[in-house]
């Protein structure tokens, strides 16, 4: 029993160590030429722009649901006028960034894990290397940079669509105008609410890209391995995002103490 537990701990620690080294290498290589600028933009399009519909629709749905819950709570205190501001703060500070990151860990993480895993088992990664191309830089660093660029943008889309969803729910419930709704939404939000919370999604993007690339790169056992890499990419990325979020929120509160009030 102890032996088995020890083996599991050793395996997990080993994997965590390998993943960390993989991530450090991605960070280091991002600043070393040649810079695969064209491939980074292609990945921003593939991973980022193509995720926009998912994020937009989800954002509206989250906004509607949050608005309904907020109304149910604030109505008891006769504070319905606070609904737009309360919803906006909840969205911008936490719900938007975290929901966007978790949704994207599903879409992007699974995609990267499966794509790179398939390239591994079909020797395409070896073919890149044989073509005198640094496969790590071409596949991993470009995706990491693309995710770091795309996540804050998609989070902003999520926040905006969430507010739009909130407006739709509020308009249906009370007939509030669009202008009044957005005036109230932005009445309590300032830059310190938006910037740190949105920038932390750059870390989430890096986590998604590096974790799923690592699992794709280390794929074995043919198509079964590709499926496993895809699933594990989503699971591990999601767990790491949730855990790192705790640390990042703590750091944000440390550097922006005003946000705790």
């Amino acid at each position: 029993m102890l032996d088995a537990t020890g083996r599991i701990i050793a395996t997990v620690a080993g994997e965590a160590g390998e993943l960390s080294l993989f991530g450090f290498r991605a960070m280091r290589d991002a600043f070393r030429p040649p810079f695969e600028v064209g491939e980074v933009f292609r990945q921003v399009h593939e991973l980022g722009l193509r995720s926009a519909p998912l994020i937009a629709v989800s954002g509206v749905a989250v906004g509607v649901v949050l608005s309904m819950h907020t109304r149910a709570s604030l109505e008891r205190f006769g504070a319905e006028s606070m609904i737009p501001a309360g919803l906006a703060i909840a969205l911008v500070r936490e719900t938007g960034p975290l929901t966007a990151a978790l949704l994207l860990s599903g879409r992007i993480g699974a995609g990267i894990g499966a794509e790179i895993g398939a390239m591994r088992v079909t020797e395409q990664i070896d073919a890149l290397e044989a073509s005198a191309v640094d496969a790590f830089k071409y596949l991993v660093v470009t995706r990491a940079l693309a995710c770091v660029i795309a996540l804050p943008i998609l989070t902003t889309v999520m926040n905006f669509c969430g507010m739009l969803g909130g407006f739709l729910a509020e308009h249906a419930a009370s007939g509030m105008s669009l202008r009044l709704y957005f005036d109230r939404s932005f009445s309590l939000i300032d830059v310190a609410d938006y910037v740190p919370a949105t920038l932390k999604t750059m870390v989430f993007g890096f986590i998604i890209a590096v974790t799923s690339s690592y699992l794709g790169f280390t794929t074995t056992s043919g198509t079964e391995g590709v499926g496993r890499a895809s699933t594990r990419s989503v699971v591990f990325s999601s767990i790491l995002i949730i855990v790192s979020n705790v640390i990042l929120v703590r750091l944000i509160f440390f550097f922006f103490p005003g946000l705790q009030s």
């Binding site: 398939a118 079909t122 020797e123 395409q124 070896d126 073919a127 290397e129 044989a130 073509s131 005198a132």
Partner: peptide, 30 residues
């Protein structure tokens, strides 16, 4: 090593074509 690899052509047993781009783009890649 990459400079040396540019002087070497390699045909893999499975061909290992990049399946996200066309056949022509595969040949144009190097």
């Amino acid at each position: 090593l990459n400079t040396t690899r540019r002087r070497i052509g390699f045909l893999f047993q499975t061909a290992a074509l990049f399946d996200s781009i066309t056949v022509g783009e595969n040949v144009a890649f190097p």
